[in-house]
Simulated assay, not measured.
Amino acid sequence: MAKDEKAKAKVEQAKGKVKEAAGRAVGNEGLTTKGRAEKAKGDIRQAKEKTKDAFKH
């Protein structure tokens, strides 16, 4: 389960980075904002999983 969540976090972060870069490249502020939000969501998911791991050990 944890590996699935960690993988989801990485995918969200990557998709967010791509959207953010694409939005900047074409001058679309909405796409840039969506990319930042998706990246942040991945960051939060990753932090949650790291916290879970810390309490397991």
Rank of each mutant, 00 (worst) to 15 (best):
D53F: 01
A40K: 15
K19I: 02
K41A: 13
D4M: 12
K56R: 13
V18L: 13
A54R: 12
K41R: 14
G23M: 07
H57F: 13
A21C: 00
G16N: 04
K41W: 03
N28L: 08
N28K: 11
K52Q: 05
A22M: 12
K10S: 13
E5S: 13
I44Q: 10
A21V: 00
T32C: 06
L31R: 09
E29P: 02
D4T: 07
Q13H: 09
N28A: 08
R24A: 09
K48C: 05
G30S: 12
A47N: 04
L31F: 09
I44M: 10
K17G: 02
V26L: 05
K10H: 06
A2S: 10
A54K: 04
D53H: 00
T51K: 12
A21W: 03
E29D: 14
R24T: 06
G23L: 05
K50D: 14
G35A: 09
T32R: 05
E29R: 07
E29T: 11
G30N: 12
K10G: 03
R36C: 01
K52T: 02
A25I: 01
G23V: 05
Q13M: 15
L31C: 03
A47K: 09
K6C: 09
A14L: 15
A14I: 10
A9E: 01
A40I: 11
K19W: 07
D4E: 15
D43T: 10
V26R: 10
A2G: 14
E5A: 13
A14N: 12
A7H: 12
E20R: 03
K8G: 02
K17I: 03
K15A: 05
K17M: 00
V11A: 11
V26N: 02
A25T: 12
K52H: 04
K56P: 02
K52Y: 04
A2E: 10
K10N: 11
A22P: 03
K52R: 09
V18P: 04
A2N: 10
G30Y: 10
N28E: 05
V26W: 03
D53S: 10
A9D: 01
G30V: 13
